[in-house]
């Protein structure tokens, strides 16, 4: 898996984040289910994704990988939330 240099934790909004990983189609589902800030997004689990209607394995993988990267950056204090 290649590493992208986009600075994954630097997203200012859920919309910006989902667009950046090309998963913008799920924005409405995220917002309607209360995941309307990057703060709440970092809490999302695979179960939550299924509930949001993210059923495709590839999309689940992409979103979970991205959340994982954001969490790591938060833990390392690289990005203030």
């Amino acid at each position: 898996v290649e590493h992208n240099c986009l600075g994954t934790g630097a997203y200012r909004s859920v919309s910006e984040w989902l667009e950046a990983i090309k998963m913008g189609r799920y924005l409405e589902a995220f917002v309607q289910n209360g995941y309307s800030s990057m703060d709440t997004v970092t809490q999302v689990t695979l179960e939550d994704l299924r509930r949001l209607g993210v059923t495709l394995a590839g999309h689940q993988k992409k979103i979970m990988n991205s959340i994982q990267e954001i969490r790591v950056q938060l833990v390392n204090g690289m990005v203030p939330l």
Binding site: V1, T55, L56, A57, G58, H59, K61
Partner: peptide, 24 residues
């Protein structure tokens, strides 16, 4: 399009069915 949709290794490609191909 495979990679953009998260199908970036063979493990996840094993799970491909009709809806996945629609998305790709």
């Amino acid at each position: 399009s495979f990679v953009d949709n998260g199908y970036d290794d063979l493990e996840v490609c094993k799970q491909i069915g009709e809806p996945d191909l629609d998305a790709i």
